[in-house]
């Protein structure tokens, strides 16, 4: 079985800006793949390269083993859920969902039946006669999903699909998307800047920065064993320790990542630091520590005693929690 999507040294330049810079990428068939990164990191351009809205400046793209560069979007068996949903305002919901089949010449009765089935799948049965303007944001999102899935694409692309929804709805949709993907077995590639979303939904994640992929791996790998300072900081805002600081804490002279929740505060052992601030987060409390000019963030689980700012505390961690990232980067 070939990979769902393969990038070989793919670059996309806009003038002098290298939006995507010699990216190699392999998405497995049937997996839920996340492209994570800050805005302007090239993740959305990669998605658009797969969809066919952009053409690579150089490099080679394959979709299920077939060459994709030079193929227009309407000839790719790939569908997209757009960030702004891009529902056609002049068509009702059923005609929006049936649009792809209408273009392919599927008869009216058949395509409307398929559209209704797709709407049922996204839990909007009977909404076919409404206009997109009459729907809520969450409902539009489901329609956009149905409109893409009804074509049974080989790959479904999702561009920040949950960005415009409020927190509660977003968590619910995350769950549903995951269930849907497992049930349909379609390869999902989705773009997000929200590391929590990527960690909770994806089978594998590619972390982007400055047009390059910094690291690809399972959520566990990305979180536990970040390869670079950027990944450590961007995914879960870890404490990134300089080689000098790592040495002072008893490790080798290498860059290191120490997760805030892995640090324990106690009366004895470990190292001494001063508390410079604390903020209550509901399920935890975030402390900032200062150890002779070096800053550390600590997450205390709910219910722990919170030392007052200015107090002197001792902190320690399990040896396995300190993740080393080499001397470079």
């Amino acid at each position: 079985m070939p990979h769902a999507v393969t990038f070989q040294k793919v670059s996309r330049h806009f003038g002098s800006v290298r939006a995507v810079d010699a990216v190699d990428l392999e998405v497995e068939a049937g997996e839920f793949f996340a492209m994570l990164g800050p805005s302007g990191s090239g993740k959305t351009t990669c998605l658009r390269l797969i969809a066919g809205f952009e053409q690579p400046t150089s490099g080679h793209i394959e979709i299920f083993g077939e060459t994709a560069e030079g193929v227009p979007p309407y000839r790719r068996n790939v569908n997209t859920v757009f960030q702004d949903y891009a529902l056609f305002p002049h068509l009702n919901v059923a005609d929006n969902v049936a649009y792809g089949q209408m273009i392919r010449g599927v008869g009216k009765a058949e395509r409307l039946r398929d559209a209704e089935a797709a709407l049922e799948m996204v839990k909007l049965p009977g909404y076919g006669a409404r206009k997109p303007g009459e729907l809520s944001g969450g409902q539009r999102q489901r329609v956009a999903l149905a409109r893409a899935l009804v074509n049974k694409p080989k790959v479904l692309l999702l561009d920040e699909p949950l960005g415009a929804l409020d927190l509660k709805l977003r968590e619910q949709m995350q769950e549903e998307l995951k269930t849907l993907q497992k049930a349909l077995g379609i390869t999902f590639v989705f773009v997000t800047h929200d590391q929590g979303e990527a960690l909770s939904m994806a089978d594998r994640i590619a972390v982007f920065n400055h047009g390059k992929i910094m690291q690809t791996g399972t959520p566990e790998e990305i979180y536990r064993r970040p390869k670079t300072r950027f990944v450590a900081d961007f995914v879960g805002s870890s404490n990134v320790l300089s080689p000098a600081f790592t040495r002072r804490l008893g490790g080798p002279a290498e860059w290191a990542s120490l997760r805030p929740e892995d640090i324990r505060i106690g009366a004895e052992g470990g190292h001494e630091a001063r508390v410079t601030g604390s903020s209550f987060l509901g399920n935890a409390t975030r402390l900032t520590l200062d150890m002779a000019g070096e800053k550390l963030t600590v997450l205390l689980p709910a219910g722990s005693a919170v030392p007052a700012p200015g107090a002197s505390v001792r902190f320690s961690w399990e040896p396995s929690a300190l993740h080393l990232m080499g001397t470079e980067t």
Binding site: I63, F64, E66, T67, A68, R75, R76, K154
Partner: peptide
Amino acid sequence: MTAAAAPGAILPGRGGLGGALSDAFW
């Protein structure tokens, strides 16, 4: 079309002058 064997990732063009022009414009 839906009843046909599962189509590949890349679909054939619509053909004809319209299809060719459209591809050229893209």
